[in-house]
């Protein structure tokens, strides 16, 4: 090969390398930009609309200014309590099975796979399924059905995080417990699960934060409510649902409330995600998930 050609080629290669590096950096900037835009705008809009009334008042009728989302905050709390009481025990149980009993078995692989698939089921489909499973037999919309829908959506996340956290616990710890004559179930519950508990709790928090923002499964189950309601048997308001209704409404004051609600939601979620990161960056659980 002539020296000229060689020089040309190596210059081209260096140029391509530089171009790709530049493109990768550009891609990163393009990804970070909308995130910063969303967060910035959200904090800007949300902080200027947030006030005490938001947390203490129920919505005013359309056209009147003022009012808050107190009933939606209460409703979200109730829905999440129902959801957690369904999703957390089943999820943790499934996770314990996967990590402690089913390691390497076909059944465990199938469960893991199904959990991942369940995670991918669109939330609106989940809402419809719960509608026909709970709302139709009950003959009315209710907070309970909304909680069930959210609870089912929590299961895969809780299950997989629990499994991953339990896998982090060294074998020696389990064997030490068994060696002291502790029955297996005690060893699992009070030794293994306890060792991994910070990770499991944050996993639950993560699932909690995710379903806290879910809107689609609530449209046909919890339905929403403009008034105070804490009954499990009645339609109930929820924060994301209220944000949706207000966002597509034509009233400026409702838009303001939607932004405030969005800010409250996002603060909750950022807290949960940061907590997960903090817990998985230290101690035995370092490197998990």
């Amino acid at each position: 090969m002539k020296l000229e050609t060689y020089k040309f080629r190596s210059r081209m290669r260096a140029l391509t390398d530089g171009a790709v590096t530049a493109m990768a950096i550009l891609a990163t900037v393009l990804v970070v930009a909308p995130l910063v835009a969303i967060f910035g705008y959200l904090v800007f809009k949300g902080a200027s609309s947030l006030n005490l009334a938001f947390f203490t008042h129920v919505p005013k009728p359309p056209g009147e200014t003022g009012g808050g989302m107190a009933n939606a905050i209460l409703g979200s709390g109730i829905l999440l309590a129902v959801a957690s009481s369904i999703g957390v025990p089943i999820g943790i149980g499934g996770g314990i099975y996967l990590a402690e009993f089913g390691r390497g078995t076909k059944l465990a692989n199938a469960v893991r796979f199904t959990a991942d698939v369940l995670n991918g089921v669109p939330s609106i489909v989940m809402g419809l399924a719960i509608y026909s499973l709970v709302v139709v037999p009950q003959k009315h919309f209710s907070a309970f059905s909304g909680g069930v829908a959210l609870g089912i959506m929590m299961i895969p996340t809780v299950c997989r995080t629990t499994e991953e956290m339990l896998l982090m616990v060294p074998h020696a710890v389990r064997e030490a417990a068994l060696g002291l004559g502790v029955p297996n179930w005690r060893s699992v519950l009070s030794i293994t699960v306890k060792t991994a508990s910070p990770g499991i709790i944050t996993g639950c928090m993560l699932a909690f934060a995710r379903v806290a923002g879910e809107t689609a499964p609530l449209i046909f189950t919890a339905l929403g409510n403009q008034y105070w309601s804490s009954s499990l048997n009645q339609p109930i308001a929820a924060l994301p649902l209220q944000i949706y209704v207000y966002a597509i409404s034509p009233y400026d004051d409702w838009h303001r409330l939607a932004w405030a609600g969005a800010l409250v939601l996002i603060v909750l979620i950022v807290l949960a995600v940061s907590l997960v990161r903090y817990v998985t960056s230290r101690g035995v659980l370092k490197g998990a998930s």
């Binding site: 944000i243 969005a262 996002i266 979620i269």
Partner: peptide
Amino acid sequence: AAIPSVIFGLW
């Protein structure tokens, strides 16, 4: 990834 879709919609 953790931002709820309704907030994306609002934005």
